[in-house]
Design a protein around this nucleic acid. Structure first.
Length: 380
DNA sequence: CAAACGTGGAG
DNA sequence: TCTCCAAGTTT
């Protein structure tokens, strides 16, 4: 008891002024306070017990998995959650098991296989990357961050992730999970995305020299399962004792974020042109929305309904009265469905006539898949 | 550097 | 129903 009293006495004498100073400086300083050095060992110990078993991952402490699978998973996981990626990852690796196979694939097959996963520029970049690996790098991924960063579709995050996970390089891996975990550990006041540089500096502080790949995946597992955006499970968190956001009692308040802009609303028309059990599909240009994807013909997307503007052919078009609502990242679309049935030759058009009963295999983005579901049961 | 770029799950 | 947001990159 005497010892306890003494300890308490010394604690109060020494640390209250120090604490006051720290709180004060923390409030104004641009560089956030130092994080404890125990974070990496605590997190790695947790990961050894709780790592998720994922198809592209080697177990904690083991040699890295196949770099092709690591790369493919990382590209698919950009802005996309694990559960969404899994079936696509399985399908891709079964059909194209390595860089050589993917590099030799037809563009149309790869785009159709990607349909529904979103952010279609990723698929075009992924294919360009596979071909660069095979044709310019002897079939192997570069093993440095800089080398990886130079490839299509590989930015700062993905280069760091692959370097760490596939090649065991120390790399500072910052994705949305790491942002959230680190912002909470430090109770970072700067809102994101403005505070990105501070987050990176904090992540650099806690990244160990050894087991960088496991550490990166551990941060992401923690962010995906415990330190989640809403209702974080601090009671289960191996880092809660070192977490300033947890200490505030409102961990969900971090990371702070800038206010978002409202999503505008746009109107468009989707054209369903039918002939002898087939429907006309087109290929969208590489640039722009749903770029490079097979699609139903559309007119302009604008503030007011465009009606039959932009119909693919002259014809006896009718507005069906049906429509499809679809939310994109930066606007929502209300697309009216126009239909036309023809019997004879249509004249020159660059589309494909696709068997309506087999429309599921066309690889349509979700907007057009919705439209097709409605129209296949509609009498023209 | 801000804006463009998909989709589905959770609350 | 509606808002938020997720293993980001490119221009």
């Amino acid at each position: 008891m005497a010892i306890t009293a003494l300890a308490r006495f010394r604690f109060s004498r020494i640390s209250i002024p120090a604490l006051r100073h720290r709180v004060h400086s923390c409030h104004r300083r641009r560089v956030p306070a130092k994080l404890p050095s125990t974070i990496a060992p605590s997190l790695l110990a947790w990961y050894d017990r709780h790592a998720r078993d994922l198809p592209w991952r080697s177990p904690p402490g083991n040699a890295p998995g196949d770099a092709y699978r690591v790369w493919l998973s990382e590209v698919m996981l950009q802005q996309t959650q694990v559960a969404t990626v899994k079936p696509y990852f399985d399908a891709f690796t079964r059909r194209w098991p390595d860089f050589a196979a993917l590099a030799g694939a037809q563009d149309a097959d790869v785009m159709a296989a990607w349909a529904g996963l979103g952010y279609y520029a990723r698929a075009r970049n992924m294919l360009a990357c596979a071909r660069a690996v095979v044709w310019e790098h002897g079939g192997k991924l570069p093993d440095s961050e800089a080398g990886l960063r130079a490839l299509p579709g590989i930015g700062d995050y993905t280069a760091a992730a692959i370097a760490a996970i596939a090649f065991e390089r120390r790399a500072v891996v910052v994705d949305a999970n790491v942002e959230r975990v680190v912002a909470r550990l430090a109770a970072l006041q700067t809102p994101l995305p403005r505070g990105k540089a501070e987050v990176r500096a904090l992540a650099d502080q806690v990244t160990p020299d050894a087991r960088a790949g496991d550490f990166a995946q551990a941060m992401m597992d923690l962010g995906a399962t415990i330190c989640i955006a809403r209702r974080p499970q601090c009671m289960l968190c191996p880092l809660s004792a070192d977490c300033r956001a947890c200490a505030t009692g409102e961990p969900e308040a971090y990371p702070r974020r800038e206010a978002k802009k409202a999503r505008p609303h746009r109107h468009g028309t989707i054209f369903w042109l039918e002939r002898a059990g087939k429907v006309l599909l087109v290929r969208r240009p590489d640039k722009g929305m749903l770029g490079g994807m097979r699609a139903l013909p559309t007119g302009p997307w604008q503030a007011v309904p465009p009606g039959l503007d932009g119909a693919p052919v002259e014809g006896d078009w009718a507005m069906t009265g049906k429509s499809v609502q679809h939310g994109f990242t930066h606007f929502t679309l209300d697309a009216a469905l126009a239909a036309c049935s023809v019997t004879g030759h249509i004249g020159d058009n660059s589309g494909e006539w696709w068997d309506i009963d087999d429309i599921e295999s066309a690889g349509l983005p979700t907007l057009f898949a919705k439209a097709a579901r409605i129209m296949r049961s509609y009498e023209c």
